[in-house]
């Protein structure tokens, strides 16, 4: 920005440039300050307090009467006189590990299916055909519907007695009795996956489509002239070129999936089969009056996500900041 003047450097000009740069940096600081103060107030400080609470025994109604109890919310043990050791804390809580497993399972399955379906939809939308704009508008609809509304819509459609999904499947002869999709332990996760995939595939498709449209068309024309099989073109040309866009889309979706809360809260409340880390943390924090214990669980979720992001960025050599362009 300061190399606008390219004549032989004279001290006076250099000093002026230096002053200008200094002035800009100082202005930048003041421009950034309000945003940084705000982010500190709503993000850094609450995060710090949540982590702090996880090392105390505070309760919901009395946030200031707690004592420091170290790692007891995470793990503690006591050896009885009989020689038996009793373990306590989140890390030996089967309900917590169930939630971890549910979250991981949900995230991996949903993001995998959404990526594949999103790529397929994007490939369809990338072709030239009549009414493409309309189709693109149509797939924006699931994305635009609030999560809570889609959860309610689908829990009505998946209703065991009067739901249209059971009716369709019965008419098609795919099932012989009505399924309690959201209530039964075996199908609750499937129900959550169906709704999540329906709602988020459009987002994936749009990100993939943006990636696809940056690939120059002449590559495909060259491949066509050479008579290369379309599948080979896809795996050798399209996929490598769309990979950076895909990597970013996958991590955004993954982070969203790992913290899922609202869909499950509405669609399958209190089902052990779908309870995720966010659900169980909030339960302990707000509903069960185990504020400190819930803080420990939310801190663990934060740690898991932080490690995941760091690993992903390191392995994928991602530069999300866009500085390296």
């Amino acid at each position: 920005m300061t190399n606008a003047i390219t004549t032989t450097a004279r001290p006076a000009i250099e000093r002026r440039q230096l002053n200008l740069q200094q002035q800009r940096v100082r202005a930048a600081f003041w421009f950034l300050a309000p945003m940084l103060v705000m982010l500190f107030l709503v993000a850094a400080w609450p995060l710090f307090r949540s982590i702090y609470f996880s090392f105390t025994n505070v309760t919901l109604n009395n946030l200031y009467a707690g004592e420091w109890i170290g790692f007891d919310n995470y793990l503690s043990w006591r050896t009885l006189s009989s020689g038996r050791t009793i373990w306590r804390g989140t890390l030996v809580d089967p309900a917590w590990w169930n939630a971890v497993w549910n979250t991981v399972r949900f995230s991996l399955v949903s993001v995998t299916i959404e990526t594949i379906l999103g790529l397929l939809v994007a490939l369809v939308l990338n072709a030239e055909f009549k009414g493409r704009g309309l189709v693109r508008a149509a797939i924006l609809i699931p994305w635009a519907i609030p999560t809570i509304v889609s959860a309610k819509m689908w829990s009505w459609m998946l209703n065991d007695q009067f739901g249209i999904i059971n009716d369709m499947l019965l008419n098609l002869g795919l099932i012989d009795h009505k399924i309690a999709w959201t209530a039964s332990v075996e199908t609750a996760m499937v129900a959550v996956l169906i709704v999540d995939i329906w709602k988020t595939t459009p987002f994936m498709a749009l990100l993939c489509l943006a990636g696809l449209q940056m690939i120059p068309r002449d590559i495909y024309e060259a491949a066509k002239v050479d008579g290369v099989h379309p599948l080979r073109v896809f795996f050798n040309v399209t996929l490598p070129l769309v990979r950076p866009a895909l990597m970013v889309a996958v991590i955004f979706r993954m982070l969203d999936a790992l913290r899922i809360f609202d869909l499950i809260y509405v669609l399958t409340p209190n089902s052990k089969a779908t309870k995720t880390m966010s659900i169980i943390s909030r339960e302990n924090l707000i509903e069960f009056d185990k504020f400190a214990y819930g803080s420990a669980q939310s801190t663990l979720l934060f740690a898991i996500i932080a490690v995941f992001v760091a690993a992903y960025m390191w392995l994928g050599k991602l530069d999300l900041s866009g500085e390296g362009r």
């Binding site: 993000a43 939310s298 979720l301």
Partner: peptide, 19 residues
């Protein structure tokens, strides 16, 4: 800044509740 937008909101729930 990007990291903050990707935060799991539950991680700040306790602290925000206090605030």
């Amino acid at each position: 800044i990007l990291a903050v937008s990707m935060f799991p909101q539950i991680a700040v729930l306790a602290g925000l509740f206090e605030l």
